[in-house]
Simulated scan of single mutants.
Amino acid sequence: MGIHLKSSLLVLFFGLTVSSARAQGSLVRYVKRVLNDTSSAATSKLLIFPTAGFAPETSVEIGIRTFSLFYAKKDTVVNRLSEIVLYTFVTFRGQFGALLENAAYTNKNRYFFLGKARYQQFPLLYYGIGPSTSSGNPVLVNSNYVQIRQRILRQVKNNWYAGVEADFQNIGSVSFETENKPNFDLPLGHEGSTTMGLGAAVVYDDRKNVLNVRKGGFLETGILWYRPGFGSDFKYRSVVLDSRLFRPLGRPNRVLALQLAGTFMTGDIPFNNLGLIGGESLMRGYYLGRYRDKNVLAGQAEVRWLPFGFSRRWGATVFAGLGTVSPTVRSFQVDQVRWAAGGGVRFLFFQKKDVFLRADLGLTREGTGFYISLGEAF
């Protein structure tokens, strides 16, 4: 597919033109204040900055990212770092998208709110369903898409949490551009769909800083039932597994990060709700949705230098991953496993909160992907 910039490229430091000298001076002071932030870890931070980027499905996009980082009661000893991120953008094609993500803890980490809400109105590339789909000549799908997924978890004992979760998804105004593919088989849900799932989740989490874990572990297992009685057009079940382990490698600034993730579904599932491979977090280098099916199994390993021993703010990472999809659990095949690998650079963005800005280049047998964001991929 060639190089695609799936995440927004931050232009806080480069290429931003401001008409008035006063605005330029204000921007310079703002950049210096952000880069040299030495406020205490307990201080809540709200950062707003412009972004620009490019993706094959959206063309050039410009937007605004807003980050809120805070500790409940400003207690950095007991409480964990919470984050709320809002990203909104428009493209040169007149498209629009917005994404709100939250990983927030209450005082003494009693409650954990983990979720996301997004709206997007732009086309996506659809390669088909299954592990053997071709990378050439994908179909362009236009739609309006809304998703709200939230977990409300209560601390049960020590680092164990349990609670409820809900997932609402709606896709409308769907059109597949298949003029040059007269024999194309339209997937389930091609006319649009609404799905609503309710379920439960169990989470183990002893991470102190979810944006940059030095040592700890995370395990989530959840199950969702989608039923017409809940307002869903389709009936199916989804089980999610996400396990992560972080360990220092000899020195505090060198970390080994491991992740194993899976999605396992049964029933009638619309194409937009299927498990996906690719994107800026898992299997970096593949287009998000390059492979999709009812079942997904993927893992990755990453070595991080945060920062280098000879630098106070610059670091790097190398990573590699394996993943595949299949229609059933029993049909997973070794020869259908895909690989992704790469590396990236890091810059210590919030010095007291130990949060890095990352830029990653993912390599696959089909091309490369470039990603820039705040916080680690997992």
Score class of each variant (00 low, 15 high):
167 D>S: 08
167 D>V: 01
167 D>E: 00
167 D>R: 13
168 F>D: 14
168 F>Y: 10
168 F>P: 00
168 F>S: 00
168 F>L: 05
169 Q>H: 14
170 N>W: 13
170 N>Q: 14
171 I>S: 13
171 I>H: 11
172 G>V: 03
172 G>Y: 11
172 G>C: 03
172 G>W: 03
173 S>W: 13
173 S>G: 12
173 S>F: 12
173 S>T: 10
173 S>Q: 14
173 S>I: 04
174 V>C: 00
174 V>T: 13
174 V>R: 14
174 V>L: 12
174 V>Q: 04
175 S>D: 12
175 S>Y: 11
176 F>M: 01
177 E>Y: 14
177 E>F: 12
178 T>L: 06
178 T>N: 03
179 E>W: 13
179 E>N: 13
179 E>H: 10
181 K>Q: 11
182 P>Q: 05
182 P>A: 02
183 N>P: 10
183 N>C: 03
183 N>M: 09
184 F>L: 03
184 F>N: 01
184 F>C: 05
185 D>Y: 11
185 D>I: 06
185 D>N: 04
185 D>L: 10
185 D>T: 15
186 L>C: 03
186 L>W: 04
186 L>E: 00
187 P>E: 00
187 P>N: 02
187 P>I: 11
188 L>Y: 04
189 G>V: 05
189 G>D: 05
190 H>D: 01
191 E>M: 12
191 E>Y: 10
191 E>C: 02
191 E>G: 11
191 E>F: 07
192 G>M: 00
192 G>F: 02
193 S>N: 07
193 S>K: 08
193 S>I: 00
193 S>R: 08
193 S>Q: 09
193 S>M: 11
194 T>Q: 13
194 T>W: 08
194 T>R: 05
195 T>N: 15
195 T>F: 03
195 T>L: 03
196 M>C: 13
196 M>N: 08
197 G>R: 04
197 G>P: 01
198 L>M: 11
198 L>Y: 06
